[in-house]
Write a protein that binds this DNA or RNA. Structure first.
Lengths: 155, 155
DNA sequence: CTAGTCTTTGACTTTAACGGAAACTGCGCC
DNA sequence: GGCGCAGTTTCCGTTAAAGTCAAAGACTAG
């Protein structure tokens, strides 16, 4: 078995646009679960590892979250995954329901955070947009003036 | 005149959720124009100073911009403001137009960045929202089952 | 004018997020 | 097997962005 493709740190790094050093750093601060190793100690990343990494990179690039904040999110996702497992296996309905409720709560909080963030970014964008608009008007006005001058003083 | 309220560093810091040290630091690296001072040397921040600070904090918090990047933005805004002043006193029109174009370009790029960022955040939020929705449905289903069981086995 | 709270500068420390160097490993080739 | 060399390891260094601490001075209430 194990048609599973394991990648070394360099390949993973390139695929994600990071450096190997960064991957080790993320592992060091607990963002990333330590991947398996070869005999000699080389890291081997599984597809799951890489999925998680992609998540992290997204959060960082898109949201400008600090690594600490990202860690919180990642941990939330992780506990969500655990809850899912638990909920599948749970024999009695009440346990299952409680797991689902907990998971739902986590998800809803994430949505709230993202929603708030989004609205703030939108607001900032609008501010900049208004400014742009004013500058555009001013610019047109000046261009009109230039046009007028050109007409009055032909070559 | 001067019903203007000047604030000291501590009050400003609290209002913005920063520490006084941070404000001094921002000033030190040229992010913030040195505010006026009392006789004894205490810093006095005007409403304009605080507005600028709020902008900076937002850029930092929402987008995770580095202070260096923020400085670029702030400088662009500043040169736009200068242009406005200068624009009142007629200098040569073509120079004016070129400066405005430059400023506009910077502003538009910011808007683009913000807009893209916003849409990405929204997308991520929607993903989470869908997941939430699924969990909610699952949860209702389970609650219904529990209800059924309760009905069939009265105390 | 005195006590108590803020503020100033300056130097040192800390934390996040990496970069670089020297030693070690995996692997193809003879 | 031995060699060469790129990729990897760990450890220490660095830079940005503050935090902390100290000593001296400034404001304010009583």
């Amino acid at each position: 078995m194990s048609a599973e493709r394991y990648l070394q740190i360099g390949e993973v790094a390139e695929q994600l646009g990071l450096t190997p050093r960064t991957l080790r750093y993320y592992e060091e601060i607990g963002l990333l679960e330590p991947p398996s190793r070869m005999e000699g100690g080389f890291r081997l990343y599984s597809a799951t590892d890489i999925d998680r990494l992609e998540n992290i990179v997204q959060l960082k690039r898109l949201l400008g979250f600090s690594l600490r904040e990202i860690k919180q999110v990642v941990e939330a996702m992780e506990s969500l995954k655990l809850l899912r497992q638990e909920s599948k296996q749970a024999s009695d309905l009440e346990t299952k329901r409680d797991s689902l409720r907990k998971g739902l709560e986590i998800l809803e909080r994430q949505v709230e955070v993202l929603d708030g963030r989004m609205r703030q970014v939108a607001e900032l964008r609008d501010q900049f947009n208004e400014r742009s608009q004013r500058v555009r008007e001013r610019l047109q006005q000046i261009e009109a003036e230039l046009q007028a001058v050109a007409v009055n003083t032909p070559s």
